[in-house]
């Protein structure tokens, strides 16, 4: 299974019936494809949609209905459009159960850096700082390394998006939780050893006593 599909499927298994969820651009967006049967999740798009649906069929795009990446989307029955103040009030007010994002760097205290590569690329934080400080659960859905370079570090070196905000890290290798004592690996993906994860991680982590196999449903 493709790494990104594997990660998206595992994150989708963490959703609960009734959750309001915000998915970032890229890999996080794929989570919407794998919502478990029997539960209802409402997707929020911070540019102003509560009740986001899938991308429209070609030729069915509506210029007034788009997501935070500016791409055409649809809305599901029961949706509401929001202005930016209410949309972020929903985030700040604690109504978003889970925010799923990518990362440039994350560290063992749950600090996240994902908006700026100093001196090179400064696209800006957009709504990410609000999402990580307002959402109850902040899940990173990302490949474990950036082409072999560590992304999970003892301490972020890039400017932060949020301080001590990340709660769960899901990669193709493992699931880690951020605890008051640092990182705790709770699941290990088939085909990897604890040493493999250690080699790919730039921070110390504990291994849960009840370490589980990271599993996702087949297609």
């Amino acid at each position: 299974m493709d790494n990104k599909v594997f990660i998206a499927k595992r994150v989708a298994q963490m959703l609960n019936d009734g959750d309001v969820v915000n998915l970032g651009i890229g890999l996080p967006t794929m989570v919407a494809n794998y919502v478990p049967e029997g539960i209802t999740v409402t997707f929020h798009s911070e540019n102003g949609i509560m009740g986001l649906g899938p991308a429209p069929a070609e030729g069915q795009e509506d210029k007034d209905i788009f997501n935070a990446g500016g791409s055409p989307v649809t809305v599901l029955p029961g949706a509401k459009f929001l202005d930016s103040a209410e949309s972020f009030g929903i985030i700040r007010g604690g109504r978003v159960n889970m925010s799923v994002l990518g990362a440039l760097q994350v560290d063992c205290r749950g600090n996240l850096a994902n908006w700026c590569v100093p001196g090179k690329k400064v696209p800006g934080m957009g709504g990410a700082m609000d999402l990580v400080s307002g959402a109850k659960e902040v899940v990173l859905a990302m490949e474990h390394t950036a082409k072999g370079n560590h992304k999970i570090l003892s301490e972020c070196t890039f400017p932060l998006t949020g301080k001590e905000v990340v709660t769960i890290i899901v990669t193709e290798m493992c699931v880690m939780r951020v605890t008051p004592n640092g990182l705790l690996m709770t699941e290990l993906a088939p085909g990897y050893s604890v040493d493999d994860v250690k080699a790919a991680t730039g921070a110390p982590f504990e291994v849960a006593a009840d370490l589980k196999v990271m599993q996702v449903p087949e297609d």
Partner: peptide, 30 residues
């Protein structure tokens, strides 16, 4: 660069006669 929710709320506050407000967004960041 302003966090999106903070920019929206700063603009809303100006229109609604609120000179300043508190937000947790951006604590510990630039």
């Amino acid at each position: 660069l302003v966090p999106q929710g903070t920019l929206a709320e700063r603009i809303r506050a100006a229109g609604m006669g609120i000179p300043e407000f508190l937000t947790p967004t951006g604590v510990g960041t630039i």
